[in-house]
Design a protein around this nucleic acid. Structure first.
Lengths: 184, 184
DNA sequence: CAAATCATGTAATGTGTTACATGATTCG
DNA sequence: CGAATCATGTAACACATTACATGATTTG
């Protein structure tokens, strides 16, 4: 896809500036974007050229003018069409798995240290999402269903990290019950 | 990271050509690379320039010469250093979650259809990995531990898809028990 | 006084994919 | 006879990140 549909999504709630969107992406940890300028401002220009957004410029003294983008009917239609389109499979990049693939070159304590580090990183991340969830951050959600869906977005990440840690535990257990050296 | 360490990993087993590596990446579904040329051939040139690989060219009649790359001691050291370095967190891009985020704009049957499609895609992918696992594909693994680790790579993916499907089920269950219309 | 906030934007770089190009050989 | 295999490589593009640039204002 691209970040464009997420932008259309936010704008389907209310008109926003590029700067507003940047902050929304930074807050919304459920999405995979860091909230970098380059993409957002470029995408806004393109969406505007495609007639999916309209633009109102508010000049300000001593600051750059605010450019407020509003979604058009065509924009709403494009968003809706995308919402109905076939979902993509998740894309997962697990550098850690590449490390593991050749981790047989490490000694048992070195491997153990590696696993411990990974587990610790997962633990921290999990904690972050869990606390983040309690203050139900980000944006005006209006229906029960919408609130539920957004909660489940968070839940997806939490479930992901929990599952990853369970897998690690199994990996550890299996390792410790391997025969001490060599063959089959 | 980059694909470079995975290449060093394969070459730590045995010398290979770019073409060999391409096929290995295509087979090794546990990694997230499609096995595209561009990256592999470029990476090989760079690794060679950095002195991590040596190169032997075997001319062939009527075919491009085979370029056989062998890992050097510096290459082995670089690989080992990377294996010991702190693991990165997984990078997950869930386009589907972005769709869900604004799926409140869909009618109940439309949303249900979306969930069904996603579930079906997960199911197919899961089946693929499960059958792939049975014929324990890819490469000469020599120690019990190495064989175990590679099996657990597969297992990680299977666990991922299974977890994702469980989450979907919970989502469905929660949806069906929401109040029919409106407020908090 | 330093840092964060507001608000726009550009430049450079990394990572990854698809498609194109060549050209003989072998397989279905 | 068309497709796949072998074997190299390039070109174009998509997506994403970090860092740079400007410049006033507010906050710690």
């Amino acid at each position: 896809m691209s970040i464009k549909y997420a932008i259309l999504g936010f704008l389907s709630w209310t008109p926003l500036t590029g700067y507003d969107l940047k902050k929304l992406f930074e807050e919304a940890a459920v999405f995979h974007w860091s909230g970098n300028n380059n993409q957002i401002y470029k995408a806004l220009v393109e969406l505007h050229n495609d007639g999916l957004l309209t633009l109102e410029v508010q000049p300000q003294a001593d600051r750059p003018p605010r450019k407020i983008y509003t979604i058009t009917e065509r924009g709403m239609a494009a968003l809706r069409a995308w919402l109905l389109s076939a979902p993509e499979l998740p894309q997962v990049k697990q550098t850690f798995l590449v490390q593991l693939a050749w981790a047989d070159q490490l000694s048992p304590p070195e491997l153990e240290a590696l696993l411990n580090q990974y587990d610790e990183e997962l633990r921290v991340q999990l904690l972050m999402f869990q606390t983040h969830r309690e203050r139900g951050k980000v944006s005006p959600r209006r229906t029960t269903r919408e609130a539920y869906l957004w909660d489940m977005l968070m839940d997806n990440w939490i479930a992901y990290y929990e599952n990853e840690r369970r897998w690690l535990e199994r990996l550890r257990a299996g390792l410790s019950s391997l025969p001490p050296e060599g063959e089959p």
